[in-house]
Nucleic acid binder design. Structure first.
Lengths: 215, 215
DNA sequence: CCTCTAGTTGACCAGTTGGTCAAGTATATA
DNA sequence: TATATACTTGACCAACTGGTCAACTAGAGG
């Protein structure tokens, strides 16, 4: 069987397309199947449930983001802080393209799914956390290089990387809410250097108050 | 009629409780009614649709956040930058309490709804944008005061305020995804000063490239 | 040729979705 | 006492939800 069925692939792509544009809950199995031109029975031959399709779509999207955005932006040839700027720039470009086609800023698919499902599906939540960690590790590498190169003061690069991820996700959310891709450029470029510069190690302020309630 | 029916109020509170804990789509009208002990017919006497309930719940939650968090945090007596720190601290405290009760970090209800529905419901999207703008204006006032007090260099306070809102929302999303309220404290306190310090006015870098695709 | 496996098909399921409606019950006012 | 208003009630709706299943088809290997 030269092409071991395109159904799985079509479902994956359809899920990415529809769920990114709307939401997990709003896209039903039926619509997924119609759009992918796959019968429902086949759906459940390839995926045990809708949620498993979403999980697979998450993995696929992460692969794409790594290949299309992160590997390009975080090229080790580029000066460390410049890498962060390029990352924002590539996301900006991408969102401009999507808006030109669909009229909408769709935000970050990982952040969207995390916001919708983190409290309801532990598997999805953990997958998104792993993706966020993956993103953070690209950023942290750049930050470590920036420290080494003296572009930036000594700091807790791990926490700083998380801060940048948070900032990125927040920008994507605001861009989605305002339907304005320009926010990604505006907020990304104007303050990302400040954010990391301001992370200069205060030696992790020695744990003053209450402790988090524990996992 | 001393109490002009508690049904509306009960529905509002139930919507806030259930939708904050899960999502808009996952909470049905039926469940809303059962939980509020209100019959479906009454639901539609008070709200023309589920979406209108969500809109009303959004307004109510914004009132509460203003009263319980923002008015306290952004007290003009407090030194400007300290206000931002207090804001993060209050959100941290709140999320610790919620996690202690429910076992979950629920994130920001406005951000959650924006992520889920911005592309699907223009009314909800615009309401959330107005709320984000409201939040930004508290922050911007603090930033202007901070500039005046010399706590911080001259800057575009409007853009900087948006950056802080983005950062806040991103932190809430990460805290939700990791189910770890500690992130709010850790990321909030360690880098918020850096973020705003780094916004020092580069005179709005004179519009180098493409223009956003337009509303 | 037979069989095994991968994939396909469409009928089927119980439960739920958001929403409607006509009839009823209070209560306040005139 | 009559009437208007505010609210309640439960039956009802078509469409859809995620998911199941047994029968079927097609190609590859023995």
């Amino acid at each position: 069987m030269g092409q071991p069925s395109q159904a799985r692939e079509k479902l994956l792509n359809t899920a990415i397309e529809l769920m990114s544009a709307r939401s997990y809950a709003d896209v039903g199995v039926q619509e997924l199947c119609e759009h992918a031109a796959v019968k429902k029975g086949s759906f459940y031959h390839f995926f045990p449930s809708k949620r498993d399709l979403a999980l697979a779509a998450l993995d696929r999207q992460w692969e794409v983001v790594q290949r299309e955005v992160l590997e390009r932006a975080f090229d080790e040839q580029v000066p460390p802080l410049k890498r962060l700027e390029r990352c924002f720039e590539l996301f900006y470009d991408h969102h401009c393209g999507v808006k030109a086609q669909t009229g909408r800023v769709l935000g970050c698919p990982f952040g969207n799914l995390a916001g919708e499902l983190s409290t309801q599906d532990e598997g999805i939540r953990l997958r998104v956390v792993r993706i966020f960690n993956g993103l953070a590790s690209y950023i942290e590498r750049a930050l470590r290089d920036a420290v080494k190169a003296g572009e930036v003061p000594e700091m807790d690069t791990s926490t700083a990387a998380q801060a940048v991820v948070a900032y990125l996700e927040g920008i994507m959310l605001l861009a989605k809410a305002t339907n304005e891709p320009g926010l990604i450029k505006q907020l990304g470029q104007s303050s990302i250097r400040g954010l990391v510069a301001g992370m200069a190690a205060p030696r992790t302020p020695p744990e003053r108050k209450r402790r988090a309630v524990g996992e």
